[in-house]
Computed example of a mutant assay.
Amino acid sequence: MSISVDPTGSPGPTRRTSAPRKRGDDTRAKIIDETVRCITEEGFGAATAKHVAERAGVTWGVIQYHFGDRNGLLMAVVDDGVTRLLTSLSAVDVGELGLRQRIEAVVDTAWHCYASPTSLAAFEILRATRGGLGEQSLEHLLQMNSAINRLGRLVSDDPADTGVAEVIWAALRGIVLAQMIVGGEFDWQSERRALIDMVCHYLQRERRQPN
């Protein structure tokens, strides 16, 4: 350890700064964010390492330093998207909400996760590469499915209602696909109301049926 001498003449340890590491983390985050914007604005094919470097204002060498190669960069985007999605899904708390309010909370949370730019870019990467990023991409899909299944149990913990949760996720995936095709903001309020009404009506009807 290097030592320094303070004005009183006493030696003391040199302070280590975390500034270089923070700059590195900021650069890495900037490159990931720019890759997300590139994919959502221009499409997956435009997200070459060279083009992303130009958009982010860095050199190819900087991308190599942080990610290794283009596949490493794409996997970092997927990692970031999945991490954000899992964090949001696991934070949902329906507490003592009534049935409709629980359904609304679940649907809105899932939509917010699915439709975020980072998630859209991650889904586009997984679709375009079709498993070409290795076993880690498959593991991410399994993690997402597990988290979504847990979220579905917030709607109903009755095993007989598992199919209802699957309908919610299938509907949201379809709407997200439409947003990806449109390539911009997507007004899905009418679809949201129809989905919530349908699930609420089905579950209430099931509970009213005599044994």
Rank of each mutant, 00 (worst) to 15 (best):
T27F: 10
L86M: 10
D25R: 07
I196Q: 01
V167D: 02
A178T: 15
G68P: 08
S18K: 07
F123N: 01
A47M: 12
T27D: 04
A46V: 03
I125R: 04
V199F: 00
A122W: 03
E124K: 00
G98S: 01
R28H: 11
M75P: 02
H140Y: 10
S146F: 14
E135P: 12
R55Q: 04
V176W: 00
H51S: 06
C113P: 01
I168V: 06
T118V: 15
N145R: 09
R21C: 01
T87M: 11
T109L: 11
S88E: 11
M144E: 10
S18W: 04
G95N: 07
A115Y: 02
A56F: 09
S88K: 14
D157L: 14
V5E: 11
M144S: 08
V176H: 00
E34H: 03
R173Y: 02
T14M: 02
W169L: 03
C38Q: 15
P11T: 06
L73K: 07
T40Y: 01
N71L: 09
L120R: 01
S2V: 13
A110I: 05
I125G: 02
G98L: 00
G43T: 04
D69M: 12
Y65M: 12
L86I: 14
F67W: 08
T83K: 15
S90G: 06
L126C: 14
L89F: 13
T48M: 08
M144Q: 12
A110Y: 08
D26G: 13
W188L: 05
R193N: 10
D33M: 06
M144N: 11
L86Q: 05
P20L: 11
H201L: 10
H140G: 04
S4C: 15
Q179A: 07
D158Y: 07
A47Q: 02
I39D: 01
V106S: 04
R37F: 11
K22E: 14
S137D: 13
L141G: 15
V52I: 15
I3P: 01
